[in-house]
Design a protein around this nucleic acid. Sequence first.
DNA 1: CGGACTTATTGTTAAATGAACACCAATTTA
DNA 2: TAAATTGGTGTTCATTTAACAATAAGTCCG
Lengths: 231, 231
Amino acid sequence: MSEIESFFKSAFSVDNVIFGFDGSELKVLLIQRGAAPFKGKWALPGDLVYPNEDLDTAAERVLEQLTGLRGVYLEQVKAFGAVNRHPLGRVITIAYYSLIKISDFAVTPASFAQSARWHAVSEVEELAFDHNEILATCLKRLKHKVRTEPVGFELLPPKFTLTELQQLYDAILNLPKKLDKRNFRKKILSMNLLVELEEIQEGVAHRPAKLYQFDREKYEQFVAEGFSFDI
Amino acid sequence: MSEIESFFKSAFSVDNVIFGFDGSELKVLLIQRGAAPFKGKWALPGDLVYPNEDLDTAAERVLEQLTGLRGVYLEQVKAFGAVNRHPLGRVITIAYYSLIKISDFAVTPASFAQSARWHAVSEVEELAFDHNEILATCLKRLKHKVRTEPVGFELLPPKFTLTELQQLYDAILNLPKKLDKRNFRKKILSMNLLVELEEIQEGVAHRPAKLYQFDREKYEQFVAEGFSFDI
DNA sequence: CGGACTTATTGTTAAATGAACACCAATTTA
DNA sequence: TAAATTGGTGTTCATTTAACAATAAGTCCG
């Protein structure tokens, strides 16, 4: 085998940290491995990248095969390439995370076959490969991202209350003290990115809250004018 | 060829955006390609990753072979993996940037053979492959990093004046207005990360400035106590 | 040696932002 | 109709940021 050929003995994969929010906790969608290596262990959904497939496309494919969802928020985070990270050969992986509305997740044939399940991020145990490290890196990135860009809304239904939005931030940031309710509302409303709807919350056993919607067009316009999101 | 084998027909490389600072401009170290593809074009230094080599190690190797330097600041930024980014096959690349003291760069045999040269970041023209995009991404990352972690010092000699430090920030951030001198000095000194030396600048045709040194130990101690760098 | 030149050094004020904090309102349910 | 639950709202003080200019220290040249 020529030297140059030896470089082509390796492969690359994508792994996708799929985040969801159930109203109180940040969740991650994991699959239980049905085959060696790490058979029976929970792992991040991922796959080898096809020879004629862009990295981003591969990450989208992994997501769609598992959840049936397309066009959701997806961001590349980092390549993980320790020599021995994969027991069967040299495989580096490119880590992505995506944000989905947890209610949109329906069990697909693929997810059924792989016994996919939501796990609270705070309670994830030992995963296959270096997936704990990947998850930690993606979570760290998400914590930063959610404060500097309005990506949190990707995890909420289109109509939400301010309390729900704050609970989302509390769940993701997981700070020693929860955010202050009055200050949070003041800040988010002062950005003028939320549209107050005519509707109110239904089916709750207490005073119902107003519903809001995120106005993406306004956000993009503000950004063009130099605005930057910050919580 | 079995399907699984087809995944092992690809390779991965690292490319390294090596930044330097000459006192007034932010520079990047480029090499002129001596062979096809893109023969004669300027490109980022990079190489295929050896089969038994970690990604970070490969990036360090590329840097050392070109500059002779070890142990310098190096950070992975992103994987670039468009299908057709490399004309000779499927090669994805992991982009890194590193920060070196420009005076430490001595021409090594490797850099001589490749005609390596510093280019002002603002004047870089069309590079080989997708290297303009990689450079832009790394520059963006550096701009962010330099405001939130004390990595700027990696580009300066161990002893520097406050004006030199500010010029570095101005050069990297390239803001419409330069930073305010009084505010900048107030802010950086208030962090208590700089040690004022007994020495002053020499060989300048005007009032010489005091020399300072970055105190990394203090920084690490402060971080452990919850401090976060911010300019 | 003195004057011109160049860069170094320093502080105040006003405006904006961030942090801390508690009560009344609206609705459901028993 | 009372109790329980969550929704909604303002003020004050401390901190941070932004804007701004005059004097000091050294070199150079005549």
